[in-house]
Design a protein around this nucleic acid. Sequence first.
DNA 1: TAGATTGTTAATCGATTAACAATC
DNA 2: TAGATTGTTAATCGATTAACAATC
Lengths: 206, 206
Amino acid sequence: MDSNQAPDIVVGRLPIYLRALTFMGEEGREITSSQELSERLGISSAQIRKDFSHFGEFGKQGTGYEIAYLRDQLKRILQVERMWPVALVGYGDLGHALANYGGFAPKGFEIVAVFDNDPAKIGQQVAGKEVLSIAELATIVRQKKIKVAIMAIPSSAAQQVANMLVDSGIQAILNYAPINISVPHNVRVQDIDPAARLQHMTFYLK
Amino acid sequence: MDSNQAPDIVVGRLPIYLRALTFMGEEGREITSSQELSERLGISSAQIRKDFSHFGEFGKQGTGYEIAYLRDQLKRILQVERMWPVALVGYGDLGHALANYGGFAPKGFEIVAVFDNDPAKIGQQVAGKEVLSIAELATIVRQKKIKVAIMAIPSSAAQQVANMLVDSGIQAILNYAPINISVPHNVRVQDIDPAARLQHMTFYLK
DNA sequence: TAGATTGTTAATCGATTAACAATC
DNA sequence: TAGATTGTTAATCGATTAACAATC
């Protein structure tokens, strides 16, 4: 157990394990094994056990893993037992879809503020929230102690908005703009670029 | 140069290189180097050169890479010089955003058919296309020889729709449902799960 | 007890990096 | 020519897998 120096690639798999365990729990299942998870996820059972071992001992020899317990441990490790307030920047079609997406809440995230720079959009209501001007971003982020942001804006604005977010105290950015943004080393960025993911697959097509 | 057995992890970086080169080209730049790409992308210059070397020799010693040439070679390798027709399944908020997303066309993808099973949505117009019943999926996919699909549907329907897509001849699926789907080994799947990506980052937050 | 499955060690495999000859 | 940068080799680093003692 070396919880501190777990490889990032292992951390990235924890949400996948958590997702599967949550699903199994909802199915009413109580016990699973690294082998069953392996079959569901296409990850070898040895790797699954090794991944867990970075964070502790969660199973019982001969039996396997208690689903609810392991699920709760993964939530604790990922720090998603709590709810994280999230700032959403960009209220175009994608921003609209994200603001209304029901998949964030059960995973520990609540969009508490939506920003755009288009006067026609500012003031609109989304999922019980008002779209605010980008000018208010820093104030609101500090006031609500928001650490996590989602950027759903054009590439042309991405670096500038990222700078504003970082200056406001944001520490994690989910970036939907198909461009590489520069941030200080203490800020984490994850990119979502569906076209790039499609291109990854067309390489293999005949 | 061993174009055939390029590791998948290398293939996955090609769209990122292509994205950067396209951007530099639009900036009016003509030449770049592995070192400049390294600084832009946060990938070591040695790795960039090694990645390219799997597919050929694209640069000139002492000079670097001709941006337009390298960009076109990467397009060729990824098979995105052509346009791929894409089927979109699911016309909720996310499906709507994807149907209107301008980022696919310049990367080689055109959504040519949109499907939903909600009678209230069927018949609606999106970006010059009509929303069709899922019942027509197999026919249209075969007729238009569609190989690539995007699933923007609830998890509960994902496996069933994936089966339909595979049976219709789809070979690549971009899956937005936060669940693992099973497909034959000759079909490729890429998952997009924003909540999982956020959880990956909260692990590191203080 | 017999059977099953964990957690861990050591071996293997694969990816990244460093270094440099080739050469533009 | 002198300086710069590629493409590639070998070394290093890190991740995955196989195997098994421990033990439920």
